[in-house]
Amino acid sequence: MNRRSFLKLCAHTGTVGTLLERYGSDDGSLDVRVWLSERAASRGPVAERATGYLDRTLGAVRDDVTVTAGGTVAVSREHGYDVVVSGEWPGKLAVGAADGDVSPVDDVNLLVTDGPMDSAPTGGGRAHIAAVGGARYLAAMPPVSDVSPVVRYSRPARVMQVLLHEAGHALGLTHDQGSVRTHGDAAVATPMIGNYAWTEGYDPSTGACGTVSGLDADRRRLSFLFSECAANAIDAYDGGLSVPSLSDL
């Protein structure tokens, strides 16, 4: 495993700029930290649900995953996409790391807000940084120990899969690393494609990790496990990432 490259926290304010560079550890582990906005923190067991599902999903790929709760932060935006691309969440991490109020980790720094989830984009993920709305739906999910890795479509399940999707972006994954596969009479979408597979204009022949045609919403199932090629990328991840374009958030 190569030495960790620096943690790069970037914002989009017309141009993409580096707000913080902090050299990571060289222990080779994969570290994830989850924060809540003040409104999200009022929604019940959101931190427990988010950390639990992240731990199972990433732990299925690697045995060196540590997922922790970072606490509550005050933000002026509850929209999961806007709080990233506006620079507010990256800025909170940069300033907080400098003054000791917030302690980022090397790999994924994810903020959960109580923002709307009715139209995409509902979250954003860039190198080492992610955010997602829908805290009320995450709180409605059962504990991870009570849920199969593949579930029928529901609003809470979709929002949890979006959370995993944005964490995947923070690790450098793209939409092409999602898949939709047939299992019996169901079409199962993995997190990096998720519900996009059932949106108008999606071409099921373009996925790099395997897709099926004839997607029927009645057959829709959501997986909380990454596709094989996404899992391979996470397994090979060593901390060095480029900043993706906004079109792939």
Rank of each mutant, 00 (worst) to 15 (best):
V84N: 06
R62F: 09
L171A: 01
H165I: 03
T122L: 14
P156A: 11
Q161M: 15
E166R: 07
H79R: 12
A157E: 03
L173W: 01
D63S: 14
P156C: 12
V108E: 07
L173A: 01
V85N: 10
G134D: 06
L173S: 00
Y153M: 12
T113D: 10
D176Q: 15
G123N: 11
A98M: 06
A74T: 05
D107P: 09
G123V: 07
V95S: 14
L173C: 00
V73G: 04
V108F: 08
A127E: 10
L173K: 01
P121E: 04
Q161F: 05
H128M: 05
Y81I: 00
V105Q: 07
S86M: 02
H169R: 13
S103Q: 11
D106T: 04
S119C: 03
P121G: 07
G178R: 06
Y81F: 15
M117C: 13
D63K: 09
V132G: 00
Y137L: 15
Y137W: 15
R155S: 11
G178S: 09
V162W: 00
S76Y: 03
V83A: 10
T182M: 12
E78Y: 01
L163R: 02
N109L: 14
N109G: 11
P149M: 05
R126I: 04
G96H: 13
A135E: 07
R181Y: 11
P121I: 03
L164S: 01
G172D: 03
V159E: 01
V108T: 02
P90N: 08
V132K: 03
R126G: 11
V105R: 10
T72L: 12
A98D: 04
R181N: 01
T66H: 11
V105W: 06
H169P: 02
H169D: 01
D114C: 08
T182C: 06
D176C: 11
L171I: 00
V102C: 09
V162I: 04
A170P: 01
W89M: 08
L173I: 00
A60Y: 04
Y153A: 12
G70T: 03
D101Q: 14
W89L: 08
D82N: 12
V151H: 03
M117G: 03
S154Q: 07
V144S: 13
W89N: 04
S154F: 07
A157N: 10
R126H: 05
P121C: 09
A130H: 01
H175A: 13
D99V: 10
L173E: 00
D99M: 12
Y137Q: 15
V112E: 07
A170G: 02
D118C: 12
S148A: 15
T182A: 15
G71H: 02
H128D: 02
G124H: 03
P156L: 14
Q161C: 04
P104D: 14
T113Y: 11
T66A: 15
A130V: 01
P149L: 05
L164G: 00
V180G: 02
G115L: 15
G87N: 07
A140G: 04
H128A: 13
S154C: 09
G133A: 09
S86N: 05
D101N: 13
A74L: 10
Y153R: 09
H165R: 13
K92P: 00
G178L: 10
T66Y: 03
S103G: 07
A167S: 15
D101P: 00
V112F: 08
V144H: 10
D146C: 07
V108I: 12
R77S: 09
V159K: 02
G80W: 08
P90Y: 06
R158Y: 11
G87C: 10
A120P: 04
V150H: 06
V147R: 07
D63Q: 11
